[in-house]
Nucleic acid binder design. Structure first.
Lengths: 335, 335
DNA sequence: GTCCTCCGTCGAAGCGCTTCGACGCCTGGC
DNA sequence: GCCAGGCGTCGAAGCGCTTCGACGGAGGAC
């Protein structure tokens, strides 16, 4: 293994000079820097991560805790993770993958052993048991999602409440009077997953404000679940003309089910969704949707962490405003 | 921060004794061990990961390179990643997440800086550019999938060739004479992704052996793609009665498409798949399938790595035999 | 010309841990 | 009763890097 002293000798300088040339923490003459860089290239030098971490008390690694639970749409998680890794690399950091399963112990372990400098936690619940721990940790963290009490914590997410509102308002503007929310599987609500709850809040509030008749329907994330909900809606809400879907896997199956029951989209029924743009676009009837910006959330989360690591203050809450794209699945009620 | 010397003082022993009590690398009397453990508990001691890595030249971190490319079924990747993390934790290791995008430089970086002890590489292609690098690295690695030339490398995967064969043989036993493989999107074959190719090999070989008439059809991973292929098959192969699907996202859409074209499954058409058991079970008509054992592959990959890190020799190739489960989607041809 | 300052570099200390050699003591064999 | 050999423990030497204080020399101010 080639070490910093080898580089120093080869370049005719001291090890500390090599270190400063690398980190830029002290001025180094142009000529010396050149020699050092040449030596590094010729010897193929790579600083030892452990030694660096020990001496600088910075590991340049971020922890990312991903959810495994039922009812979470996997591609969204993956896209988010990839965005975190990609952004972290831009800041010269790597990403350690933790599973939800490891729980609080896992968080404490990687934080206390100085394996990581900072943490990103996904799938936050309203009353998440990890909140006190995150507050007490000596390392900065960012949560994806908003718990009820976010005091002293940094959170970021799509503004799901506004997203729910945007969908309803869009339908209201098109003249729809009876709307339904087809949501996540029941267990997601039982766990009080923050984002799912907030969609319901926004949906209901906006419907009430606009004087719409509304109802909420959790739905299993399977085609069979979608068919069940479709049949139930037709039976119980014959006047229904507007649907908001917040459940990625059943978006297409639900539309199929409606059509098989004789309802045309958007002719008889307007459908909007909260989901990744790619999904909304790839459905047979492209769906008017509020984008789920996983990549942006991941990127912003890393940037927040970097700011905190740099000692800057950051806003406690970052709510990304919903961005709605009209596609073929919505139409005026009389059209 | 509480360090090993604090623990040592508190327990009335030397730091090295604490270290040995922790690692078990030298005998420590029961009584001393108790005192050390008590001190650790009382002080809340956590060994510093960087210091440990520096002194022991072991970081206890594995690198996992996940694919991002089009045509890869994300839930399978995720399940695999989770299984790797979970298993690694059982061996007291953590997992660093790398994206394919970082490429060979990323691998070299984490290996050379001693950030990781070993590497797991997914989505191996027949002529993967990373092969020479992995051979030259001073750290052990395991590849998920088989390149053409695996000399000097450790590989593990489902035996996709045998899986393809098993599907055909199952259909042949049921009396089917004309079979088709509906495979991955074209780009997967263009890239020469190992596992996709091997399924084709096994499928074709077994069909030839059994004297079946067979054809292979790449298919876009969208419902529209499934419909296209279904229509094409009906048009071009009216005698078709057996289908093998190796493309997770379209399994259910393809069956839907067949039924909408008037073919009953399994009455008119028997369908088998190579996919995760959960997927096969959750389709409306549960599908006879060869399981894609991502969790097992992940676990075994980590175990292989641990053996290699321990200095033991491991087999270069580990092919997991296909395991087929009969479900409702296949029936005898005359039934 | 002298003094002060700042730039560029060096040397040494130390980050917190593991590991190696050494050493005392206790036990067992004869 | 004496020696050999473990067992259990200690002390010290690093692991490879960063960082702090120091220092020589060049340049500017007066």
């Amino acid at each position: 293994m080639v070490k910093i002293t080898d580089v120093a000798r080869h370049a005719g300088v001291s090890p500390s000079t090599v270190s400063y040339a690398l980190s830029g923490k002290r001025p180094i003459s142009e000529e010396t820097r050149q020699r050092v860089e040449a030596a590094i290239r010729e010897l193929g030098y790579r600083p030892h991560a452990g030694a660096r971490a020990l001496a600088s008390s910075r590991s340049n690694v971020l922890a990312l805790v991903v959810p495994l639970r039922a009812g979470i749409h996997v591609p969204v998680v993956m896209q988010f993770a990839v965005s975190v890794v990609t952004t972290a690399r831009r800041y010269d950091h790597d990403v350690l993958l933790l599973t939800q399963e490891e729980g609080e112990d896992g968080l404490r372990r990687v934080a206390d052993t100085a394996l990581v400098d900072a943490l990103i936690v996904m799938d936050v619940q309203l009353h998440d048991p990890r909140l006190p721990l995150l507050r007490s940790l000596e390392r900065p963290s960012v949560m994806i999602g908003f718990p009820s009490d976010a005091d002293g914590l940094t959170c970021i997410d799509l503004d799901f409440k506004a997203a729910g509102e945007a969908c309803v308002e869009h339908l209201a503007r098109l003249g729809h009077r009876v709307v339904a929310l087809v949501g996540s599987p029941p267990e997601v609500y039982v766990r009080q997953t923050a984002f799912a709850q907030r969609v319901v809040q926004g949906f209901t509030a906006a419907a009430d404000r606009s004087g719409l008749s509304s109802s909420v329907h959790p739905c299993e994330a399977t085609p069979a679940g979608a068919r069940l909900v479709a049949e139930q809606l037709l039976r119980e809400q014959p006047a229904l003309t507007g649907v908001v879907v917040h459940n990625e896997p059943i978006l297409e199956p639900l539309i199929d089910a409606f059509e098989q029951l004789g309802l045309r989209v958007p002719g008889d029924l307007s459908v909007t969704a909260i989901c990744p743009d790619e999904l909304a676009e790839s459905v047979r009837v492209p769906v008017t949707s509020v984008a789920l910006p996983s990549a942006e959330v991941g990127e912003r989360a890393v940037q927040l962490l970097m700011k905190k690591l740099g000692g800057s203050a950051v806003p406690e809450a970052t709510l990304l405003p919903p961005r709605m794209t009209e596609r073929a699945s919505t139409a005026p009620r009389d059209a």
